[in-house]
Design a protein around this nucleic acid. Structure first.
Length: 563
RNA sequence: GCCCGCAUAGCUCAAUGGUAGAGCAGUGCCCUUCUAAGGCAAAGGUUACAGGUUCGAUCCCUGUUGUGGGUACCA
């Protein structure tokens, strides 16, 4: 509907003012209208007319241009306010379940690179935010008709691995932990041990650098053995996390496989794009673009840095999926890093120019401040999942539900996802265990609960069949208010995709569900005044149910029929 | 030093240049009811500060303060 109104306004504007413009259609704050446009205010200065006059001219021209429009009014300083016909609003209930809210766009190919856990390193709560955000963005882009490719990129070679190997060699415990998770935890601890030693002990630092060198050369049998074993354990452990969080990837990429092609590319361009400085090979970003800086691609030991691995990666990724855009979901501490390496990549591969995108997000912080993965002062991701699960389990203990374990799992993971996606990516999350495990107010469980309530109603009532015209006649004002709010769902998804943030969706769903809860306490479906009213309400809450389901799906959250 | 974020109610967060809104917490109500994990009501604001642009600024620009991150061989 938004596109239709946009087109109508643009046409009317062209007819009257001989100018092509792009019109904005918004959701008005006043509930009595369905859509609004500020086009008259936008163009008033340019046209040298008062906004009200422009609005009046457009209003006259737009009248009766479309069946779905009931009336157009001019509000305030010159907003065009549209009210839609009830028949149009009600026709929404015939939407196809799976694609309701979706928009058909051109078949653009978008790669989303996220998760990017590092082998032999701890899995902390910041990774959770990364995975939730990446998966949600991928799903939101899919609703817009884009061809989405999910990529995962593992840090599985280099200093981080060396630190863990050092830790494994220096820890006083040779027993192998029994489960993938315990092995993951154990390696995380060893990494922290190595990280601390690297900073505090000069000889440990040298040993770790030596291990890193051996990893690239592949010339030390014992190092290779620990490396291969640790790598295997890590991936085995990560799989359990992905399964728990409900995500799969189209392809995994590895630093251990991208550094060699990266090195070849860099070496080919030494002297032109890359230069030697203090024994290292660097890219002098400031020479290519304003505000960039110099970064090391090959260190003085002759080993590749992350920069070089990323160079190899971009070529591998483009080969795997010739993307129009590649969204790298990475924390904002690397906001300075990406512009430099993107420029280096564009210099080498001009066809990639402007296709790389860093989707930056803030830290998940404790109240005490930043948590560092180097000192071991971390909150583990699966610890947080455990906490959420035990909290949910406690609340559900008095309820008699089938397949309780599964419900607890879905509610707990959903609560974490919703909680983190509720905050716009660029802002930090001040993490509080107390808040995140609460089940009142702005939370995922609140939305899931509304879904379950609707399911419960639908399960108990089989409505009689009537023509739409009859149903429309019998619905009450409160019912229309519900459906009015539902109609904005496609706009919200579109905006989330345009701005690459799911937080509009969480806010929308909360508002939608809160409207439903009010409506629910004041209006009964079961005890509706007439069979006609009941049948109409059933149609509306079915649409509402689909909206919640599709909305939560775009956040990576599953719905629950009974909870 | 330089670069990039952020600053909105007690707390956690929203607001595409168009009347600053939610949820927690605190206050007062509502369960023989389709799931009370719910609902209703009241209360809570000099949008860090100072300028500028605009008919109109939380939003755009400049400066100040506070705060977080980055700033060559980590990722």
């Amino acid at each position: 509907m938004k596109q239709i109104l946009q087109q109508l306004i643009q046409d009317a504007f062209y007819t009257n003012f001989d100018k092509k413009i792009s019109a904005n259609i918004d959701m008005p704050k006043e509930a009595e209208f369905d859509y609004s446009s500020n086009i008259a205010l936008q163009t008033a200065k340019e046209l040298g007319k008062s906004p009200k006059d422009i609005a009046a001219i457009l209003e006259k021209d737009l009248k009766d241009t479309h069946d779905a429009i009931e009336s157009i009014e001019i509000s305030g300083p010159g907003f065009l306010m549209f009210t839609m016909k009830k028949s149009f609003l009600f026709s929404l209930v015939h939407n196809n379940a799976k694609t309701w809210g979706h928009t058909k766009n051109e078949d653009k190919k978008i790669m989303v690179e996220y998760s990017c856990l590092n082998a032999m390193k701890p899995f902390h709560i910041g990774h959770l935010r990364n995975m939730f955000l990446g998966e949600s963005i991928a799903r939101i882009l899919e609703t817009q008709g884009y061809n989405v490719f999910r990529a995962n990129y593992y840090g599985d070679i280099g200093m981080n691995i060396a630190k863990c190997i050092w830790g494994l060699r220096n820890i006083n415990n040779n027993t192998i932990p029994a489960t993938p998770r315990l092995r993951g935890d154990s390696m995380g601890k060893c990494y922290a041990l190595g990280g601390t030693a690297y900073k505090e002990q000069e000889n440990a630092k040298k040993e770790i650098q030596q291990i890193s060198k051996e990893l690239y050369l592949g010339d030390n049998e014992d190092t290779q053995k620990i490396f291969q074993q640790g790598r295997e354990w890590s991936f085995e452990y990560f799989e359990t996390i992905y399964k728990k969080l409900g995500m799969t990837f189209d392809q995994h990429f590895y630093e251990s496989q991208s550094w060699k092609p990266g090195m070849e590319i860099i070496k080919k361009h030494i002297g032109s794009l890359f230069t030697e400085s203090n024994g290292a090979i660097v890219f002098e970003g400031e020479k290519f673009k304003e505000k960039l800086h110099t970064r090391v691609f090959i260190n003085s030991e002759g080993n590749p840095t992350y920069e070089t691995k990323d160079m190899g990666l971009c070529s591998q990724q483009n080969e795997a999926f010739a993307f129009d855009q590649n969204i790298h979901v990475v924390g904002n501490e690397q906001a300075g890093y990406f512009p430099v390496i993107f420029e280096a990549q564009y210099q080498v591969f001009p066809q990639l120019r402007d296709k790389q995108y860093h989707l930056s997000y803030g830290m998940v912080k404790l109240k005490d401040g930043k948590m560092s993965s180097r000192t071991g002062d971390v909150l583990y991701g699966d610890w947080l999942i455990d906490e959420a699960e035990s909290k949910v389990s406690e609340i559900l203990s008095s309820r008699d539900i089938a397949d309780k374990e599964n419900v607890i799992d879905k509610v707990a993971v959903g609560a974490l996802k919703f909680g983190m996606l509720h905050i716009q990516p660029k802002n930090d999350i001040i993490f509080s265990l107390e808040k995140s495990t609460q089940f009142e107010g702005d939370t995922g469980p609140y939305v899931q609960y509304a879904y379950a309530r609707i399911s419960s109603i639908l399960e108990k009532i089989t409505p009689e069949t009537f023509d739409d015209a009859v149903l429309i006649q019998n619905l009450e004002e409160a019912d229309w208010n519900l459906i009015r709010h539902i109609q904005y769902f496609p706009l919200i998804l579109q905006r989330c995709a345009d701005e690459k943030t799911p937080h509009y969706l969480t806010h929308y769903l909360l508002k939608l569900v809160s409207n439903f809860s009010s409506w629910y306490s004041a209006n009964s479906v079961k005890h509706a005044d007439s069979p006609e009213l009941q049948a109409g309400r059933i149609k509306i809450i079915k649409l509402l149910q689909i909206t919640i389901k599709n909305g939560l799906h775009s956040l990576g959250i599953e719905v629950i029929e009974k909870m």
